[in-house]
Design a protein around this nucleic acid. Sequence first.
DNA 1: CGGAAATAATTGCATCTACAAGTATCCCGG
DNA 2: CCGGGATACTTGTAGATGCAATTATTTCCG
Lengths: 148, 148
Amino acid sequence: MPVADVSPRGCTHFKARQFARRLSRRYDAELAMAGLKTTQFSLLTHVLNLGPVAPGELARRMGLEASTLTRNLRPMIAAGWLVQVPGQDARSRRISITGLGQAKQAEGRRRWRVAQTAINRLLGPQRVAALHELLDQLAAELEAAEPR
Amino acid sequence: MPVADVSPRGCTHFKARQFARRLSRRYDAELAMAGLKTTQFSLLTHVLNLGPVAPGELARRMGLEASTLTRNLRPMIAAGWLVQVPGQDARSRRISITGLGQAKQAEGRRRWRVAQTAINRLLGPQRVAALHELLDQLAAELEAAEPR
DNA sequence: CGGAAATAATTGCATCTACAAGTATCCCGG
DNA sequence: CCGGGATACTTGTAGATGCAATTATTTCCG
């Protein structure tokens, strides 16, 4: 008895990107009411959870290039949500969230909740949970296979 | 007997985006050997498959904002891979692929194959197929729920 | 016919993303 | 102590993304 053909059709990257774009518009619309981009909210949340953290470490955790992080930080430091302080060495830094940043994160969190709840309702909590599971697994495997 | 708690944890958008970023780096590395960005390859492929097409229609099919498409087209038209010709009205246009563009797409297609095969091998064809299935379904539902 | 509303695409502005190259600093072996 | 290589970020360059506003046309209704 032949096994089913499981060869994936189409481009995984295109599908992932298109899906991410469609999601972006929803989250961004909600977070815009708090004056935040979705990426900025993620960044605030990561810094809040990790505490003062080196840019390199933060970038690794978020799956971003270090150079991307440098640039994403700029408007947020300018807004006074994050600060950069010297690290151990003269070459390293630490990123910390400010009081203003914490307030902004809390504001964003309320908006994010609304957006996430809408997505759960629209797509079905079980399928969203299944997607999370799959994405978490696959992302971890991609990361593990990345060049050190 | 209580049902399992299926409330999704974490942010769907962040997970999708992080995953897409990790994929991007792999596809882009391969497609760079053909002098293409992944997005450009998608665009070439869509125009090839759809034939001469209005920008608005193309944007809808790809899940892009029209304004994004306008800008993504610019370097590709400059490269001579695509051309823009007048449409029915004076306000509409049609995008077509050139011979040069077809050659570039074929070149990209070989590179894409390599990248996609590597992903299938790394993540497992069954899980990739399952992800495609899920993403296709969910993206379609997001699209259906988008404002007309 | 004439103007309001709809349609199609582009532009202004801001941010996100990443590879390659550059700067500054540190560490380690000789 | 010194020089090469590793580390930690930042910059140069280029494209991707989207919202709001704009331009140009068309359509429709009175």
